[in-house]
Deep mutational scan, measured.
Amino acid sequence: LELTLRVGDKTWHFKDVDEEFVRHLEELLKRGAHEREIEEIIREWLR
């Protein structure tokens, strides 16, 4: 999967994204996660 995600003024483009990561992001967005929380999840995933 490829994913382009825009949060606030930042845009990330990922290739070979894990479906579990996408589901986790979807859940965060559904519950109205704040920009900082989403950025933290992305940084963790990139490690």
Rank of each mutant, 00 (worst) to 15 (best):
V22C: 02
V22L: 03
E39V: 08
H24A: 10
L25R: 00
L1I: 09
D16W: 14
E27A: 12
T4A: 08
T4C: 15
W12Y: 15
E19F: 15
E20V: 13
E44I: 08
E39P: 01
I42S: 01
R47T: 13
F14E: 00
T11M: 10
I42L: 05
F14W: 01
I42P: 00
D18W: 01
L46R: 04
L1T: 09
H13N: 04
R43M: 15
A33Q: 06
K10S: 06
E26V: 12
R23F: 09
L28V: 08
R43F: 13
K30Y: 10
K10Y: 09
K30T: 11
L25S: 01
G8I: 01
H34P: 14
V17N: 08
K10L: 07
R23H: 12
V22I: 06
I42D: 00
H13K: 06
L3W: 02
E37P: 02
W12I: 03
E39F: 05
E26T: 12
R31S: 12
D9P: 02
K10D: 04
D16M: 14
L29R: 03
W12F: 12
R36E: 14
D9G: 07
W45G: 05
T4Q: 12
L46M: 11
L25N: 00
R31I: 09
F21C: 02
E37Q: 11
K30D: 08
E35S: 09
K15L: 08
L5N: 00
L29A: 09
L46Q: 11
W45D: 02
V22H: 03
V17E: 15
T11A: 04
E35A: 09
F14Q: 00
R43C: 07
I42Q: 00
E19S: 14
W45E: 04
E27R: 08
E20N: 13
R43Y: 14
E40C: 08
E37I: 11
I41S: 08
E37S: 05
K10M: 09
H34D: 15
V17H: 07
I42W: 09
G32W: 03
L5R: 00
L5S: 00
G8K: 01
R36I: 12
E40F: 09
I41Y: 15
E44D: 12
T4R: 15
F14I: 05
E27M: 12
H13P: 01
K30R: 14
E19A: 15
L25E: 00
E44R: 08
E26D: 08
R36V: 12
R47Q: 12
R36F: 10
E2G: 09
E27L: 09
I38Q: 02
R43E: 15
D9A: 04
V17F: 02
D9W: 01
T4F: 06
E35R: 05
K30G: 09
V7P: 00
F14L: 15
R31G: 13
R6N: 11
L1Q: 10
L25Q: 00
A33S: 08
W45I: 04
R31K: 13
L28D: 03
H34S: 14
L28H: 09
W12P: 00
V17C: 05
R43H: 15
K10N: 08
E40V: 09
R36N: 14
V22S: 01
F14Y: 01
L3M: 07
K30N: 12
R6C: 07
L25H: 00
E27F: 09
I42G: 00
V22E: 01
T11I: 15
L29Q: 07
L25A: 03
T4M: 11
E44T: 06
L28C: 04
V7A: 02
H13Q: 04
R23L: 09
R23V: 07
R36A: 14
E37C: 10
R36G: 13
E20G: 15
R31T: 10
R43Q: 14
L28A: 11
L25V: 09
K10V: 14
L25D: 00
F21E: 02
I38D: 01
D18T: 11
V22T: 03
G8C: 03
G8Y: 02
E40M: 11
F14K: 00
H34Y: 07
